[in-house]
Amino acid sequence: MHSADLRLGERLFAAVAAFGVAAVPTALLLVLIEANWPPLHRLDAAAAERLHTAVRDHPAARTALRVLSEGVWDPLTLRLLVAVAVGWLLHRRAWRLAVWAAATVTASGLIGWAVKAAVARARPALPDPVAHAPGFSFPSGHAMTAATCCAVLLLVLTPVLGRRALRAARTAAVVSVVGVGFTRIALGVHWVSDVLGGWLLGLALVAATAWAFDGWRRDTGRAVPPPLADGLEPELARHGPPEAGGRTP
C-alpha cells in the first residue's frame, strides 16, 4: 500500500501532463482569440454590449448579479465548500480522496493565475461600467473555480447522496457553473470566450487528476467505478473507504 501511495503522488504529478492534453480545446480557443476570429469576436462584442446595456438600465438586476457573483458564487465561497468536504473526508478517514480534492482545487487557483499572467488579455472596456475587477481577463477565474469546485464536490459526494438528492446536486452544480459565467459577462468584467476558457480549463484539470486517482485504485487492487455515476470512491456509501491493503468486494 505504501508504494501505491507513493505512486498516487507520482500520478498526481503525471496528471499535469494529462492536463496539458485535456486542455487542448482551451489552447484552440486561445488561438482563435489571438487571431481575432470574426465569429468569436462578434459573439464576445454582442454579448458584452447587450448584457451590459440591460444591466446598466436595471439597478435591481445589477444588484442581484453582484450578490450572486461576489457572494453566493464567489471563488472563496466555493473553495470553502470544498474545504468543508475535505474536512468531512478526513473525518471519514478517506485520506487519499481528501488529498485529491484539496490538490485539485489548489492547482486550479495556481493554474488560473499562471494562464492569466501568460495571456495578459485586457478586460472589456465598456461605457458606463457597472462593475470592476482587477487583473487580466482570460480565463475567467470565477468560471474556472466554479467548474472545478462543482465537479470535485459531485465526484466526492455522489456515493452518499440518494437519487433525488443527487439529481438536485447535479442541477445545482450546472446552475452554479452556468450562472457564474452569465454574471461575469453581464457585469461586463469578462468576455464570453473568457468564461468558456475557464470552464474548459477547470473541467480538464478535474479530468486529469481524477485519472490519477483512478490509477491509484488500480494499483491497490480496487475496482475503478464510472466516476460520473458512482463517484471516485463509492465505498463512502457504506462505512467509508476500505482499510489499507484491503480490496473492494
Results as ranks from 00 to 15, higher is better:
Ala4Arg: 05
Leu8Cys: 01
Gly9Asp: 11
Phe13Glu: 02
Phe19Met: 03
Phe19Asn: 08
Gly20Ala: 14
Gly20Cys: 11
Val21Tyr: 13
Val21Ser: 10
Ala22Asp: 14
Pro25Arg: 07
Leu30Ala: 12
Leu32Gln: 05
Ile33Arg: 11
Ile33Thr: 00
Ile33Leu: 13
Ile33His: 04
Glu34Asp: 05
Asn36Gly: 13
Trp37Ser: 07
Pro38Arg: 07
Leu40Gln: 11
Leu40Ser: 09
Arg42Trp: 11
Arg42Lys: 04
Glu49Met: 08
Glu49Trp: 05
Thr53Trp: 02
Val55Ala: 12
Arg56Pro: 07
Ala60Leu: 15
Arg62Tyr: 02
Leu68Thr: 01
Gly71Asn: 01
Leu80His: 03
Leu80Pro: 05
Leu81Gly: 14
Leu81Cys: 15
Leu89Ala: 10
Ala94Ile: 07
Trp95Thr: 06
Trp95Met: 07
Arg96Trp: 14
Arg96Gln: 12
Val99Trp: 15
Ala101His: 12
Ala101Leu: 14
Ala107Cys: 03
Gly109Phe: 02
Ala114Phe: 05
Val115Gly: 07
Ala117Val: 08
Ala120Trp: 11
Ala131Ile: 12
Ala133Ser: 15
Pro134Thr: 13
Ser140Tyr: 09
Ser140Cys: 13
Gly141Thr: 07
Ala143Trp: 08
Met144Val: 03
Cys149Val: 05
Cys150Ala: 15
Leu153Ala: 14
Leu153Val: 02
Leu155Arg: 02
Val156Thr: 01
Pro159Asn: 07
Val160Tyr: 02
Arg163Ala: 10
Arg163Pro: 00
Arg164His: 03
Leu166Asp: 10
Arg170Gln: 15
Val174Phe: 10
Val174Pro: 13
Val175Pro: 08
Phe182Ser: 11
Arg184Leu: 11
Ala186Tyr: 08
Leu187Cys: 09
Trp191Thr: 05
Asp194Met: 12
Gly197Leu: 14
Trp199Pro: 10
Gly202Cys: 12
Leu205Gly: 10
Leu205Phe: 12
Ala210Glu: 05
Ala212Asp: 02
Gly215Ile: 00
Trp216Met: 06
Arg217Leu: 14
Arg217Gly: 01
Asp219Ala: 14
Gly221Glu: 08
Ala223Asn: 02
Ala223Phe: 01
Pro226Val: 02
Pro226Ala: 10
Pro227His: 06
Leu228Glu: 07
Leu232Tyr: 06
Glu235Gly: 09
Leu236Cys: 08
Ala237Val: 00
Arg238Thr: 04
Arg238Leu: 15
Pro242Glu: 11
Glu243Asp: 14
Ala244Thr: 04
Arg247Val: 13
